[in-house]
Amino acid sequence: MHSIDSKIAQGIVNRVMKVIPYNVNIMNQDGVIIASGDRSRLNKIHSGALLVLEEKKSVEIHKDTDKEKAGINLPIMFSNETIGVIGVTGNPDDIRQFGELVRITAELLVNEHFIFSKKKAFEMHRDKFLYELTQLDGEYSERIKQESNELGINLDVPRIALVISMKNKDFNYYVKIKDKLWMFLEKQEFIIEYFENTFVVLVNTPSKQNIIIDILYNEEVEIGVSLKEALISTAVKQGDLAIKVGKALNKDEKVLRYEELYFLSTLTTCKGNEILKRHIEILKNEGNKLDLIDTILSYIENSGEINTISKNLNIHRNTLNYRLEKIHSLTGKNPKNFLDLLELYTAYILYN
């Protein structure tokens, strides 16, 4: 059963009274006045409305009494159901010309409200469902497939996830960016609220991926780009990992692609290893003044080329060798040994 909210009813009253010079009331299905141009009449039983609800037709009152005022009262219909009554106060002979106009206006506004509410409820359900898909482990169940069909989401379409992390934390900026992106999305492409200051854009093609990246390139964001995946959760996790690994490596790029970082992202499965954690703690605490972590990163980025590393760090070769020996003595890992260097680099990615 539908009912009129008092806030919506008062909005209708206010709009109608802008175009007619008479007081207007709206009564609910119990005949109680829930909106009125005369605030003193709120929450009172309207006997004329009770007659309208009982007889399901317009009722005219020609004289003021203790319980009611002269006027015309008409049923408000929605989906063949009487959901309330709208009344215009005044001499029926004077206001009869407004009666049908007022009723039709009220019904149009009520219909608009219910359609909007239904659309909003659908969108909220769909958004919640899409978020749940980002957290899913494993394949889609039959229940999920059925619900997705009801919500118009085709799970057979492989998608690319762009995880958008906002550097600008202003909420209005966040909304502006999302609204801009919606203009470029097509059917079966979605925006998902992921977590605070981060949302996900699901697109169907690499060309649309590139369009989104171009739109965002001058904005205050970081973008993690996944591979094209059958499962939404897989794509989103890839985009998320691309950002996390990119941040760990202090990469300045705005666009971080899982395709380029997937090998390093596999190292995150080592999280929780106390030995790796201790390596970084030692290098941070005891090697801070010597910039030992920066030395390791430069050593990797420059493939162990001593001259290039020395130039990059702006230090002498002897200073570089001293730092490498210090790393070895503090951690027991020799950066000149490939496996030891990989262990130190893994520790950095996980715990920096």
Rank of each mutant, 00 (worst) to 15 (best):
L51S: 15
A35Q: 00
G31C: 08
D94Y: 09
Q29N: 11
H46T: 08
E60S: 14
I61T: 09
S79E: 15
A49L: 07
V88L: 09
L42R: 01
V19G: 06
N91P: 02
H62G: 04
L42Y: 01
Q97P: 02
L53C: 06
K7Y: 03
I12N: 04
G87Q: 08
D93L: 13
G37D: 02
G84F: 11
P75F: 09
T65A: 05
V59F: 15
K7V: 13
I61F: 08
V19D: 06
G11Q: 10
G99L: 05
I76K: 11
A49K: 06
E54F: 08
V52R: 05
K7L: 10
S58K: 15
E68L: 12
A35N: 00
R96V: 11
G48S: 11
F98C: 05
L74V: 14
T65D: 04
V32Q: 09
M27S: 15
F78D: 06
I86W: 03
A35G: 03
V85K: 05
D30F: 11
M27N: 14
L53H: 12
S36L: 02
M77K: 13
K63H: 13
E100W: 09
K7P: 01
V32P: 00
K18F: 07
Q29F: 07
K44R: 15
K7Q: 10
L42H: 00
Q97K: 15
R96S: 12
N25P: 05
M77P: 06
L74R: 08
S58P: 12
D93Y: 10
S47T: 14
V52Q: 07
K56C: 08
N14Y: 02
G31P: 10
K56R: 15
G87P: 08
S6G: 02
D94C: 06
K44N: 12
N28Y: 11
D66G: 04
G90A: 10
I12V: 13
L101H: 08
